[in-house]
Design a protein around this nucleic acid. Structure first.
Length: 604
RNA sequence: CGGGGCGUAGCGCAGUUUGGUUUAGCGCGCACGGUUUGGGUCCGUGAGGUCCGCGGUUCAAAUCCGCGCGCCCCGACCA
């Protein structure tokens, strides 16, 4: 490609509405242009890089038996109604009516469509297992797009869907994806870790997220440097310090004026936080009556199947509530803090709450509460607390489970080493869906006993644009981008220092032609610009190899070769440049290839 | 959706507080001419603006007021 013909141009200054380094560099280098919040055009250079990522994805998906298809972006509402997500998902899913007034949605993922396909195509266990995937535009009306391509509303995603007869088959495909994803990201030059994750709105039994560790990341990860444990904070666990065994003592009311926080309480009573019970009041939006939607005829009914329920969560004073765990424990669609009025309505008191004697509330106690005797809790009366509160004797939780948040310094659940928290960008995820969608939509197969059984499914996604942004985010220096050879829009950037010397242009033209002829992808800066401009643009654009053709070198019969990621510039005789470039490309590719290794499967 | 910030030429900004001398400027970029040719050369000429939109106040609005729209950041949210 001749730069004189290129559709995009570089910017000396980043647009003022950019913040993330990847966003700034991709904009400045002309890889992307923004149309609206979370809506971008991929310009020629950006499009080429994205296409390369997609091709890597294809190769790895094909390698594990994937068959590429393409499903529609616009879906009739009915399949989404069948699974209930039409009602469960809020304004993040955009809906509209077609000309006949039929409800339509812009697909934000494709479980419904692919399950519809499966029930049409798959009849027998003999047709299983199968794996299909597609690379398609998705629309999610995210309330807060940010950081350029990191979090957008319209984006391209690879999603694959596996179909199996049983859990064992699903596990096999799940593990195949686990390794394929590492291969894909490693081939893109991305350093990722797999962390155990919440299944969120997808449902399902097991899920991993593939994370690029980066400060710009929005997910908090809990990691163990000793044994490799890694979970999203939403699901991370830890070894809770046990409470000393004590015989239960009689409950005792104490005056604690103006003591409303755990800090105040521990100071006032001179006790450790672990001897206190912390109350957290939430309102949960929960489904009213269970609707196992096999045949949901009355849609309106289901729409109204949502009510608010008061959640009284209790954790030990030395721990924090993890809202994701809490929401899962009570099967809530959403949680919000309760108001003071709502707290008083159940018989509790803000700042002095305890589960003793409250009514119309679902009491959820953390495991550690049950194991910890003689805690100090509120008296549900302003200015008073209770000593020696004991679970079972003084109150009975409705649910006992782990609802605490793991954090920096907690003990690793596997080895006890101190945990570390870090930030990550999710570039991929894998979910064991099980039969949630197939059962809801009637996607069944006949097994060898002629019994119809729901197909066991998995769902696996990769954000293509987000992956590109992550590469840009992690591969750059003060001068610009530094693309891995595998996804660089072009492998070589020829900088022709054309001046009065006509030979330079002739040699550069020939070099461009010769390299192109042997299959090397070349971006050729043939513009009438000063050397400084060309060098700076070459650095900004970040192609892995740069060839400088100038009269200074030509006098000695050489051109200069430079790797973008290194300082050295090497003079190469003109008659050796083709082979040298090919060798350098091979070397760069080998460096990436060396990163593509088998990764042992970890549950978390 | 809550809090904050911003919206003036393709990009970056000044001007807005204190309305009028601003036919709205500056740098970069762009066009033309010349110059230069190994790290954003230099000189000259020139084009380019609904000052986000609508409404209001005023003799007079980029500037004050109201409403709306858009974008960015923090939070809520996020398959």
């Amino acid at each position: 490609m001749r730069m004189s013909q290129l559709f995009s141009h570089t910017l000396r200054d980043a647009p003022s509405n950019t913040q993330a380094i990847s966003h700034q560099l991709l904009e400045r280098a002309g890889f992307i242009r923004q149309l609206g919040a979370g809506i971008f055009t991929a310009m020629p250079l950006g499009h080429r890089a994205l296409a390369k990522i997609e091709q890597i994805v294809r190769e790895e998906m094909n390698a594990i038996g994937g068959q590429e298809i393409k499903m529609p972006v616009v879906n009739p509402a009915d399949v989404w109604q069948e699974t209930g997500r039409w009602y469960a998902i809020g304004s993040e899913m955009s809906r509209f009516q077609d000309r006949t007034g039929s409800e339509m949605v812009l697909a934000m993922t494709h479980e419904e469509v692919v399950t519809d396909l499966a029930r049409r195509e798959i009849r027998s266990y003999r047709q299983l297992p199968r794996l299909v995937y597609h690379i398609q535009t998705k629309w999610r009306d995210d309330p807060r797009p940010r950081a350029g391509l990191i979090r957008v509303r319209e984006f391209t995603m690879k999603d694959s869907y596996s179909f199996d007869v049983d859990e064992a088959g699903l596990d096999q495909q799940y593990r195949a994806h686990y390794q394929a994803y590492f291969n894909i990201f490693h081939r893109c030059g991305l350093d990722v870790i797999a962390v155990g994750s919440d299944t969120g709105m997808m449902g399902g039994s097991l899920a991993h997220e593939f994370m690029v560790l980066a400060p710009i990341g929005e997910d908090t990860l809990i990691l163990c440097d000793s044994c490799g444990y890694a979970d999203n904070r939403q699901v991370a666990t830890f070894q809770k310090p046990p409470a000393p065994a004590e015989a239960p003592r009689p409950i005792e009311k104490v005056a604690t004026p103006d003591v409303t926080t755990i800090d105040d309480l521990t100071a006032f009573l001179e006790i450790p936080p672990a001897k206190t019970a912390k109350a957290v009041f939430m309102m949960a939006e929960v489904a009213g009556q269970k609707v196992q939607s096999q045949e949901v005829e009355s849609q309106e009914d289901e729409e109204q199947e949502s009510e608010e329920r008061f959640i009284f969560a209790v954790v030990r004073g030395d721990m924090e509530v993890n809202e994701t765990k809490l929401a899962n424990a009570v099967q809530a669609r959403a949680l919000r803090p309760a108001t003071d009025e709502e707290i008083r309505a159940i018989g509790a008191e803000p700042g002095y709450g305890s589960p003793i004697g409250v009514h119309d509330a679902l009491i959820v106690a953390d495991e550690a509460i049950v194991e910890s005797p003689n805690l100090v809790a509120g008296a549900n009366e302003a200015g008073f607390h209770l000593r020696n509160v004991n679970t079972g004797r003084d109150f009975t939780p409705d649910i006992v489970t782990d609802i605490t948040a793991a954090g920096e310094g907690n003990a690793c659940p596997q080895c006890g080493h101190a945990l570390r928290a870090d930030r990550g960008v999710e570039v991929g995820n894998i979910f064991k869906l099980g039969t949630r969608y197939s059962a809801a939509m009637g996607a069944t197969f006949k097994d060898s006993e002629r019994v119809a059984r729901p197909i066991v499914m998995g769902s696996y996604g990769i954000g293509i644009g987000r992956a590109l942004a992550c590469v840009a985010e992690s591969h750059n220096d003060e001068y610009g981008l530094i693309w891995p050879i595998t996804i660089a829009p072009y492998q070589v950037h020829i900088t022709a220092l054309t001046g009065r010397d006509e030979e330079v242009a002739q040699v550069a033209d020939q070099l461009y032609a010769d390299l192109s002829a042997v299959g090397v992808e070349v971006l050729y800066d043939d513009r009438d610009e000063s050397p400084g401009v060309k060098f700076n643009d070459a650095d900004l654009l970040g192609m892995p190899l740069r060839i400088t053709v100038g009269s200074r070198g030509l006098k000695k019969g050489v051109v200069e070769l430079k790797r973008r990621d290194r300082k050295e510039r090497t003079p190469v005789p003109l008659d050796e440049i083709i082979e040298t470039v090919q060798a350098e490309i091979a070397a760069l590719a080998a460096e990436i290839e060396a990163q593509v290794v088998d990764v042992p499967f970890r549950e978390s």
